[in-house]
Design a protein around this nucleic acid. Structure first.
Length: 517
DNA sequence: CTGGGGACGGGGCCC
DNA sequence: GGGGCCCCGTCCCCA
């Protein structure tokens, strides 16, 4: 019995010890967890504080931007409406004018309408793009000397004056890029220096005077036609008609085509983006406003990048029929980054990937719901196609042009021989401008760009434009540095195959095999 | 002599 | 098979 009592006592003490140990264990665990929990809470509180601070900073930032924007809008309120329209195209890396004009990168380049001389150059505005705090300059091109426009601005005026193509277009009577502001501004004095805006804001010097809306609309339609269908297609349409009687040649008239001259590029999205090439009217009369804003709406939805990254030539645009209304003053967007048709691709894909950029662009367009392939512009273009399908009498301006190009045409005749110079059986297609015969319709259509001055393929990296896609491709080696042709004897490299061939005469005096790398 | 643009012919692919 | 379209190769010319 006594043993039993002792046993029980021992058991009780053991139980107590165990209980104490368990409690201590539990307490320890709780303390540990509590410490961890406290730590986590502290960290969470720290994070909350950091986030709250961040939020406050963001709010401050937004408030500041809003204030700046308000200030900017106040400034804009004193500007002409066309300038405001331009300001909507924020996000464009570069703004150029129609034609070859490439304005300075790194600037927002806007065009000041005629008659608004109070808006001065380099007026800083806040750019809400990107960080939202950067400030860039507005370069206003005025009808003043080059110095006035600032060092960063390429002088469009002088370029136009010096650009033979431009003068060619003038001679052909083909509008460069039609812009019509038929309104209030009086025609610029013919002997003044023509700035961009003077051209823009006044009846074009090389356009017939157009004052009524009807004529203006026609002009607009004409523009669309040019963009959508290059002369090849137009010529094709005409060629669809039966050939002239008593002739084995198929006469191909070249109409008064103006150069699709707006992008200085591209690509392709091919930008398309090149590029793309999109055009905006800066000063719009009602018709233009409709189309222009429509375009802007599309592109403002974030499709600019798509365009700018895949369009590399307007020829592509033309083929797809995606044309944004062009007036003489156009706004172009380009990506600063190399576009789809870049050097790497050119180099690596030489002979394999060539030409795929156009497809890239097409695909990008096809996937772009905003690109309406059946836009009213197309209808108008079709109508315009009819209206421009005239005989040579419609293109009397080309006679002047042909005379200008006479030497070149003679050379061309010497090279390929005109239809009248033999082998006429194969060269069924006759150019009505120079009587040169071609065996392939495509060739004559391409050839007619010689007369029309159309250069639908524009380089995304520079202002160069080309009548043939292949030449553009070769040209882009200038930017990419790709020289796929190397000499086997001296390891010199060339970007042109013929350059290599010519070079190798130095070694051999005769022909030598070109080594493609 | 080289770099680079203009132009033409022709082959390949697709419809 | 033919036509349209795209692309490439080639040549010429000029700076």
């Amino acid at each position: 019995m006594a043993n039993c009592m002792v046993f029980h006592t021992q058991i009780a003490s053991i139980m107590e010890v165990l209980a104490n140990a368990a409690v201590a264990e539990i307490c320890k665990l709780v303390d540990d967890d509590y410490a961890v929990f406290r730590l986590e809470i502290t960290q969470s509180q720290k994070e909350n504080r950091a986030l709250r601070r961040k939020l406050q900073l963001q709010e401050l930032k937004v408030a500041r931007e809003r204030a700046e924007r308000t200030t900017q809008e106040r400034v804009l309120a004193s500007r002409p409406s066309s300038v405001k329209i331009l300001d909507q195209y924020k996000g464009m890396a570069r703004v150029t004018l129609s034609g070859e004009g490439h304005l300075t990168e790194g600037h927002r380049t806007f065009v000041k309408p005629v008659g608004h001389n109070t808006w001065r150059d380099d007026q800083p505005i806040t750019d809400d793009e990107g960080s939202g705090t950067s400030t860039k300059n507005i370069i206003v091109i005025e009808s003043v000397d080059a110095e006035a426009a600032g060092p960063g601005v390429k002088q469009e005026r002088s370029e136009r004056e010096e650009d033979p193509r431009h003068s060619r277009e003038i001679q052909t009577g083909a509008p460069h890029v039609a812009t019509e502001v038929p309104t209030t501004t009086a025609p610029a004095p013919p002997n003044t220096q023509h700035s961009i805006m003077e051209v823009s804001g006044t009846p074009n010097a090389f356009l017939k005077s157009e004052t009524d809306t009807k004529t203006l609309t026609h002009r607009l339609l004409h523009t669309g036609s040019d963009h959508r269908s290059d002369p090849e297609r137009l010529g094709r349409g005409r060629l669809g008609s039966p050939p002239a009687n008593d002739s084995e040649y198929l006469p191909v008239f070249h109409q008064s085509q103006r150069t699709v001259n707006s992008r200085g590029d591209g690509d392709t999205l091919d930008t398309g983006v090149d590029d793309l090439s999109c055009f905006y009217t800066t000063e719009m009369e009602p018709v233009n406003i409709h189309l222009g804003l429509e375009t802007q709406t599309d592109l403002s939805k974030g499709d600019w990048n798509q365009y700018s990254s895949s369009v590399y030539s307007e020829g592509c645009l033309d083929k797809k029929g995606v044309v944004i209304v062009v007036d003489e003053v156009t706004v172009k967007m380009e990506d600063d980054v190399p576009l789809t048709l870049n050097g790497d691709k050119t180099e690596l894909g030489e002979g394999h990937s060539q030409g795929r950029d156009v497809l890239d662009y097409r695909e990008s367009l096809e996937t772009n719901p905003n690109v309406a392939t059946q836009s009213p512009l197309h209808i108008l273009r079709d109508r315009d196609r009819v209206s421009t399908s005239m005989g040579p009498s419609d293109s009397h301006g080309h006679f002047v042009f042909d005379q200008v190009l006479n030497s070149k045409d003679q050379r061309a005749k010497a090279q390929g021989g005109g239809a009248t110079s033999g082998n006429g059986k194969d060269k069924r297609f006759l150019c009505m401008s120079c009587n040169k015969g071609f065996s392939c319709l495509q060739n004559v259509e391409t050839h007619q760009r010689v007369h029309t001055g159309e250069k639908p393929f524009s380089c995304t990296q520079c202002h160069m434009r080309f009548a043939q896609a292949g030449n553009l491709k070769i040209h882009q080696r200038v930017h990419t540095g790709v020289k796929p042709f190397s000499c086997t004897q001296c390891h010199m490299r060339f970007s042109h195959s013929y350059s290599l061939k010519r070079h190798q005469r130095v070694h051999t005096g005769k022909n030598s095999t070109a080594a493609l790398v």
